[in-house]
Design a binder for these strands. Structure first.
Length: 488
RNA sequence: GCCCCCAUCGUCUAGCGGUCCAGGACGUCGCCCUUUCAAGGCGGUAGCACGGGUUCGAACCCCGUUGGGGGCACCA
């Protein structure tokens, strides 16, 4: 039975790279029929926030990553917030100390640095394991000075390696990893300690995490061995280090990079299934001739051992292309339902929309669907249908509402005023006759000005249908308004 | 500096010793369709970092070089 987990710390914004990691763990668990555990690692009171915690759960649910054990769901190994598990860590720490796997260390960072420098070494080498063999007397003496020790893990004196699920054999030489701090002098447990302890207690079998954590794996393995020895763990899990997600440069997508904020994709109206699809492509491929797939297809096909080991750049254009494909594939009613909240938020339609607004929306939806990339595009694309007056884009006006376009607006207005039945077909006939035949304009020179005058943009849903929905009065008013304001 | 990871079109990838003078997607370019813009269709462009091996045969295996990245906290 496979048990995977996603264990973010609730500090600030939700990172797309973190959600990619969550997705892979979820997909791996679902594909193998295993369990997906969601755990909150809020051991850093100074940086964690309740708001961030709530937001994390919200993002997970929105993306469709359901968890079998975790916050608000419960499970046999709770609680699932580390801030509520301090007794667990206190107990395990005591047992590790008693068994000799951990020891009390009094060296301060300054003292370690000083010793490294005195020995002509780079302080970057870190802790020098100086306190490994303090006698009981020395410990007592140091305590008598009022010094409080941290708890450190005693690293084994041998090479530490493992078979990585995505990278194969990896090994670190003995002595290359200093004894890590498990618990602060204050008694506060640290991530390198709580993480493996909880993984062990929660039965996690497969750890899929970012490659940035790869160098810390030896100490995790050492801890696992110690935990196994004292009966807390029943072995070491498998590890799979996922490729990093790069931003525009050749660097890990940092938390400071605007592109890393998961919310911007949600807010722009990416579809959960579209984002799931793209995120999955960051290091994985479903087939050699296809890259659009549903979450269900992802689960069906996902194989962690086929995840690529090279870093993946977050390519917004590709993400948009993938999302647009999913958007177009939506049944039109579903599309309309998903677009509506964006129009409501923009103040274009009521909440809920009025019957008339709904009629217009239903009519225009199929025509708008294939012209959009994200749901929020609807605000700009369809706004003109839900307002009395239209805001005309300056660039569009400069391009299509020039002085010489005045004749088009006049001719269009005259022709449309005379259209007997206000239907798309009749509107088309009237405009073609008056602008293309009578005025002798090329189609793009004929319809461009009308489009901009009426919709405010050079890109809009098909013109005749748009005019039909807009109604004769508003259409004529806008043609005249544009004539006055621009084409003179 | 030390440790570790990575190396196929601009980007993400397929490739797991012969079927690859390397396939797909995004981008880009051209054409078609066309009422603008898209969408859609068709076509083009562009890549195995380098050097040694191993092998009858290497993008695929080994070694080295170069390049890129990550990590070196009493953060997670």
């Amino acid at each position: 039975m496979t048990v995977t987990r996603f264990c973010p710390s609730p500090t600030g914004l939700v990172h797309v790279g973190a959600m990619r990691t969550a997705l892979f763990n979820w997909a791996h668990a679902r594909h193998t029929g295993g369990t997906f555990v969601f755990r909150i690692e809020d051991t850093d009171a100074a940086r964690d926030s309740e708001e961030s915690y709530r937001h994390l759960l919200d993002c997970m649910r929105w993306l469709g990553l359901d968890w079998d054990e975790g916050p608000e769901v419960g499970g046999p190994h709770g609680p699932y917030r580390q801030s509520e598990r301090h007794e667990v860590y206190r107990d395990v720490a005591a047992r590790l100390l008693a068994a000799g796997h951990a020891y009390e260390s009094f060296s301060t960072t300054e003292e370690v640095d000083a010793r490294r420098r005195a020995a002509g070494q780079d302080p970057k080498l870190g802790y020098d394991n100086a306190d490994r063999h303090l006698t009981a007397e020395q410990v007592a003496a140091l305590r008598a000075e009022g010094r409080e020790p941290v708890l450190r893990l005693r690293m084994p004196d041998e090479d530490l390696g493992w078979t990585d699920l995505v990278r194969g054999e990896i090994s670190f030489a003995a002595g290359s990893v200093p004894d890590p701090v498990l618990v602060r002098a204050t008694g506060a447990p640290l991530y390198p300690f709580t993480n493996p302890v909880d993984d062990a207690l929660m039965g996690v079998t497969d750890v899929l995490r970012g490659e940035d954590l790869l160098p810390s794996t030896p100490r995790q393995i050492a801890l696992y061995r110690a935990l196994t020895d004292i009966g807390v763990a029943s072995g070491t899990p498998r590890f799979g280090h996922l490729p990093l997600v790069f931003g525009d440069g050749n660097k890990k997508l940092s938390k400071r990079d605007p592109q890393s904020d998961f919310d911007v994709y949600r807010d722009r109206g990416f579809l959960p299934e579209g984002l799931v699809n793209y995120l999955a492509l960051l290091g994985w491929a479903i087939a050699d001739d296809r890259d659009v797939f549903s979450p269900a297809e992802l689960v069906e096909a996902f194989d962690v051992t086929r995840v690529s080991a090279n870093p993946a750049r977050f390519d917004l254009r590709k993400a948009e292309a993938i999302n647009a494909t999913h958007l177009r594939a939506l049944p039109v009613e579903e599309f309309t339902a998903r677009v509506t909240p964006f129009l409501v938020r923009a103040g274009l339609v009521g909440d809920p929309p009025t019957a008339e607004q709904q009629r217009v929306l239903d009519a225009i939806a199929p025509l708008a669907q294939e012209r959009m990339i994200v749901l929020s595009d609807a605000v700009g694309l369809l706004g003109f249908l839900f307002t009395d007056d239209v805001d005309i884009d300056a660039a569009a006006a400069a391009k299509n509402l020039r002085p010489e376009d005045g004749e088009v607006l006049d001719a269009a207005a005259a022709a449309l005023r005379a259209v007997p039945a206000w239907t798309a077909a009749d509107i088309e006939g009237a405009l073609k006759q008056s602008l293309v035949e009578d005025l002798g304009r090329k189609p793009r020179q004929a319809f461009g000005p009308v489009r901009v005058a009426v919709s405010g943009r050079t890109v809009s849903p098909p013109l005749y249908e748009s005019l039909e929905l807009l109604g004769r009065d508003r259409t004529l008013r806008r043609l005249e308004g544009a004539r006055e304001a621009y084409a003179r």
